[in-house]
Design a protein around this nucleic acid. Structure first.
Length: 775
DNA sequence: GTAGGGTTAG
C-alpha cells in the first residue's frame, strides 16, 4: 500500500513540488550494524541539518549522492530506505535525473516491486535510450523476451547496445533466425555485438556459423578482444572442433592474448577436452595470474586424470573457492561412486558459509539419489527449502527423482503437484519416478496427460517397463513412439534392445540393430553393449561376438557382457580366455564379471581355476566376495562332487548363506546321490524359503533317483500341507508376431490336438512319456 | 560511480 501511494504520488510531486518530507515516512527499523543503515542515518542527519545542497546550482551533486545511496538500496535490497530516497528525489526535483532514475528502476526491481518500477518507467521514461536499454535488459533477464522486443520496437531511437541486448537474449533462447534478423538490422556493429552473436551460434551448436562471423568481423577490421577469443575457444572445445581451435590458438599467441586470464582459463578446458593433460597443466603453470576459474579448471583436470587425491589436495590449497568449485567436488566425487563423501562435502560447503546454487543442489541431490538413502535425501531437501529453491524446476526435478529412487513416489508426487510452473523435465522426472517405483499404471496415467511429449518422455516409459521386467509392454510403447513420429535416440534403443534380449524375439532384435545403423549410433559403447547382450541372450552368440569385435571403443561393461554371454552359452573356455584378454587390456574387472567366470568354471568342473579366480578377487582387485560369489563356489564344489568340501566351505563363509547357497549344495547331492548331506541341505533351503517349491522339488528328485518312493510321497505331502504347488516348466516359440507357450502336456493351445497328433507321428515314443513332474 | 558479449560445474 505504502509503495503504491508513493509511486502514485511521485508524479504529482515532480510537477507541483508540493511538500513531501522523508520524515513523513515510517521510521525504518534497520539494524545499526549494517552499513546502509549507517549511511542512511548520516544522510538523514545531513538532510535535517540542511547540509545537503538543494539549490539548482548543486543539482548535480545532490543527484549523485542520491543515486549512490539508491544503488546501495538495490545491492542489498532496502525498500524503506529506497522509498525515502525516492520521496526526497521527487521533492528536490531530481527524480528524472538519468542516474537517479535508473537507480530507482533498479531499486524497485531488486526489492521485488516490479509493478511499481514499470509504472514509474511508463510515467518518466520518455525517449531516454539509457533507461529503455536498462528496462529491456531487465525484461530479458527475467525471461520476458517479448516485453523486451516490444519495448525495442517502440523506442524512438536505439543504439548498438539495444540491438546487442535483444540479439543476446534471442540467442540464449535458441531463437536463432530472429536473432540473425535483429543482428542484420543493426546499423553499426561493435566487437561486443559480434561477440554476442558468435557466442550465440556456438552455444546453439552452430560453431561453424560462429567462426564464419568471426572471420567476417576480422575482415571488416574489427579486432577480436579477450572475450571474443574466450567464446570462440570454448565453442570449438565444446563441439570437438580441435583442429579449428588450434588455428585460433595461433591467433591468440600472435596477438599476445595468451597472457590473458580468461583466455587462458578457456584454453585449460580446451586441452582437457582434447585429452591433452600435459598442455592443460602447462597453460595453468605459465599463467601470469590465476583466479578461482583457473583453479576450478585445474581441479577438473585432476578428476579427468582420475587422481582424486591430487584433486583433494588442489581443492584444499586453492586460494579462493566459489560455488562452482564446491559443485565440481560434489559432482565428481558422486560420479566416482563416492556419494557419501559428496554429501560430506556439501555439509562442509554449508559450514564454510558458501551459498549453494541450483547446480550445487542438483549435484548433491543426484548423489543422494544414487545412495537411495531417504535420510540423506530428506536432509538435503530441508536445505533446498531453507535456501528457497523448492520452486526451481531444475531442483524440483532432481528431488522428484531422488524420492522415487527411495521408493517414495507419493512424496515425489507432492513436490510435482506443488510446482506452479512445470516444464517437460519435471513431467518426465515424475513419469520416470513412478516407473522406477514400480507404479507403471500411475506412470502411464501421467504419461497420457502429457500433451507435448519429447523423446525423454517416451524413454521414461520404455525404460520403466524394462526395469519392471514388462518387456512386451516396452516393445508396445516403442511402437507407439515410432507411430507418433518421435525419433528414438540412443537411450531408447538401448532400452528396447534390453527388452528384446529378454524376449524370444531375435528377429525384432535384428531389426533394431538395423535401426541403430540407420541412426548412426551403432558404434557407441552403450548400443554395442546392448547388442552383445541381446544377441547372446537370444542364442545367437556368433552375432554377439561380431558386435563385440566391431566396437571401436569398449568399456568395462562391454567386456563383462561378452564374458557373461559366452559363459551363459556354455562356452566356458572361450569365456575364460576373453576374461584373460580383458585383464591384459588393463580393464578393471567388476564383481559381476567374477560371477560369470565362476559360473564358467563350475560348468566345466574347473575347481582349481575357480579357486584361483575367487582368491584373486580380494587379493588382486580388492573386491570383497558377496553372497552370490560364495554360492557360485558352493555350486562349483557340489557339481564336481566335492560335497563334503562344499558343506565345510559353507560353514566357514564370512557371510550368511542364502537359500540358493544351500540349494546349490542340495542340487549337487541329487546329482551325486548323497542323501546324508542332501537332507541337511534341503532342511536349510525349506527353512530359508518357506513359500517356494525349489527345496521340496530337489529333495523329492533326490529321493526318486535313489528309489526312496516312500520319502518322495512324504515330501509331496509336506508340500501340499504348506499349500505349495509346483509351477511347470514352459517352452515357447514365436511365429510372426505371436508367441506360443507350452507347458508339459498342456492342452490350452487352440490347436493342441493337432499339435499332439503331429508330435506322435514325429516322435512315436512321446506317447510313452510319463510326466514325472505332475504332482 | 548509468545500459550490451565470457571462462570453471551440471
Amino acid at each position: 500500500m505504502r509503495v503504491k501511494s508513493i509511486v502514485n504520488l511521485s508524479h504529482n510531486f515532480y510537477h507541483s513540488a508540493s511538500s513531501f518530507s522523508t520524515d513523513s515516512l515510517p521510521n525504518p527499523k534497520i539494524s545499526p550494524r549494517t552499513s546502509i543503515a549507517a549511511i542512511f542515518k548520516s544522510f538523514k542527519r545531513k538532510l535535517a541539518a540542511g547540509r545537503l545542497p538543494s539549490t539548482p546550482r548543486s543539482f548535480k551533486s545532490s543527484a549523485e549522492t542520491c543515486a549512490a545511496l539508491l544503488r546501495r538500496c538495490s545491492c542489498s535490497p532496502r525498500l524503506l530506505a529506497g522509498l525515502a530516497l525516492h520521496g526526497h528525489a521527487v521533492k528536490r526535483g531530481i527524480s528524472s535525473d538519468r542516474s537517479v532514475f535508473t537507480k530507482l528502476l533498479s531499486m524497485y526491481g531488486e526489492c521485488g516491486h516490479r509493478d511499481d518500477r514499470d509504472r514509474i518507467f511508463a510515467e518518466f521514461a520518455g525517449s531516454d535510450i539509457f533507461s529503455c536499454n536498462f528496462m529491456m535488459a531487465d525484461f530479458a533477464r527475467s525471461g520476458d523476451i517479448d516485453a523486451a522486443c516490444s519495448l525495442f520496437d517502440k523506442m524512438p531511437c536505439r543504439n548498438v547496445i539495444s540491438w546487442t541486448i535483444i540479439v543476446d537474449e534471442l540467442m540464449k533462447r535458441g531463437r536463432i533466425s530472429d536473432a540473425v534478423e535483429y543482428f542484420e538490422g543493426c546499423p553499426c556493429h561493435t566487437v561486443v555485438s559480434f561477440t554476442a552473436m558468435i557466442n550465440g551460434f556456438s552455444r546453439n551448436g552452430m560453431i561453424f556459423d560462429g567462426l564464419l562471423l568471426f572471420r567476417g568481423m576480422i575482415r571488416i577490421g574489427l579486432m577480436p578482444n579477450e572475450v571474443t577469443f574466450t567464446c570462440v575457444i570454448a565453442g570449438c572445445g565444446g563441439s570437438g572442433e580441435f583442429g579449428l581451435a588450434m588455428s585460433v590458438v595461433g591467433m591468440i599467441v600472435k596477438t599476445s592474448f595468451d597472457q590473458n586470464l580468461s583466455v587462458c582459463n578457456s584454453l585449460i578446458t580446451l586441452y582437457i577436452r582434447m585429452g591433452d593433460a600435459g598442455m592443460a597443466r602447462k597453460v595453468f603453470d605459465e599463467m601470469p595470474e590465476r583466479d578461482v576459474v583457473s583453479w576450478t579448471a585445474l581441479l577438473d583436470l585432476c578428476f579427468e586424470s582420475g587422481d582424486l587425491k591430487e584433486a583433494r589436495r588442489v581443492f584444499e590449497d586453492m586460494p579462493v573457492r566459489n560455488e562452482v568449485s564446491w559443485s565440481t567436488m560434489i559432482a565428481r566425487y558422486s560420479q566416482s561412486g563416492e556419494d557419501l563423501e559428496a554429501l560430506r562435502l556439501f555439509n562442509l560447503m554449508l559450514q564454510h558459509d558458501s551459498k549453494p546454487n541450483v547446480s550445487s543442489f542438483a549435484c548433491v541431490i543426484s548423489a543422494s539419489s544414487s545412495l537411495e538413502n531417504l535420510m540423506h535425501g530428506a536432509g538435503v531437501h530441508s536445505h533446498v527449502i531453507k535456501f528457497g529453491y523448492e520452486h526451481d524446476v531444475f531442483v524440483a526435478s532432481s528431488l522428484i527423482y531422488m524420492y522415487s529412487k527411495c521408493k517414495k513416489s507419493d512424496d515425489a508426487r507432492q513436490i510435482f503437484d506443488s510446482l506452479l510452473i512445470k516444464n517437460i523435465v519435471c513431467w518426465n522426472s515424475m513419469v520416470g519416478g513412478y516407473s522406477y517405483d514400480g507404479k507403471m499404471e500411475e506412470a502411464m496415467h501421467l504419461f497420457k496427460q502429457l500433451v507435448r511429449k519429447n523423446a525423454s518422455s517416451w524413454n521414461a516409459m520404455i525404460s520403466g517397463f524394462v526395469h519392471n521386467e514388462l518387456y512386451g509392454n516396452a516393445l508396445e510403447i516403442f511402437d507407439a513412439m515410432l507411430g507418433s513420429g518421435e525419433a528414438p535416440n540412443r537411450m531408447t534403443l538401448s532400452s528396447v534392445l534390453m527388452a528384446c534380449a529378454n524376449l524370444p524375439s531375435l528377429e525384432r532384435g535384428r531389426n533394431l540393430h538395423a535401426k541403430t545403423l540407420k541412426l548412426g549410433i551403432s558404434n557407441e559403447v552403450i548400443i554395442g553393449t546392448a547388442l552383445i547382450d541381446m544377441y547372446a541372450k537370444s542364442g545367437d552368440i556368433g552375432s554377439a561376438r561380431r558386435a563385440f569385435s566391431m566396437m571401436p571403443e569398449k568399456n568395462e561393461v562391454s567386456w563383462t557382457t561378452m564374458v557373461r554371454g559366452l559363459a551363459d552359452s556354455g562356452l566356458a573356455e572361450e569365456s575364460l580366455a576373453l576374461f584373460d584378454d580383458m585383464r591384459r587390456e588393463n580393464v578393471i574387472p567388476s564383481e559381476s564379471v567374477f560371477l560369470s567366470i565362476l559360473f564358467a568354471c563350475s560348468h566345466r568342473r574347473l575347481v582349481q581355476k575357480g579357486f584361483h579366480y575367487f582368491d584373486s578377487m580380494e587379493r588382486v582387485y580388492g573386491i570383497a566376495p558377496k553372497e552370490r560369489h560364495y554360492t557360485a563356489m558352493v555350486d562349483l564344489l557340489s557339481r564336481a562332487g566335492l560335497l563334503r568340501e562344499a558343506e565345510e566351505f559353507i560353514s566357514k563363509m564370512p557371510v550368511a548363506p542364502e537359500s540358493s547357497t544351500w540349494a546349490a549344495l542340495l542340487s549337487g547331492c541329487v546329482t551325486h546321490g548323497n542323501g546324508e548331506i542332501g537332507e541337511r541341505a534341503a532342511k536349510m533351503v525349506m527353512e530359508l524359503e518357506k513359500e517356494k517349491t525349489g527345496g521340496y522339488v530337489l529333495l523329492s528328485n533326490m529321493y526318486a533317483s535313489a528309489g526312496r518312493w516312500r520319502d518322495v510321497a512324504e515330501v509331496r505331502r509336506l508340500m501340499r500341507e504348506a499349500g505349495l504347488k509346483k509351477g511347470g516348466g514352459c517352452s515357447w516359440i514365436q511365429i510372426r508376431a505371436a508367441f506360443h507357450a507350452f507347458y508339459s502336456w498342456d492342452s490350452n493351445h487352440p490347436r493342441a490336438l493337432e499339435i499332439y497328433d503331429v508330435l506322435e507321428l514325429l516322435v512315436p515314443e512321446m506317447g510313452t512319456f510319463y510326466d514325472a513332474d505332475t504332482y
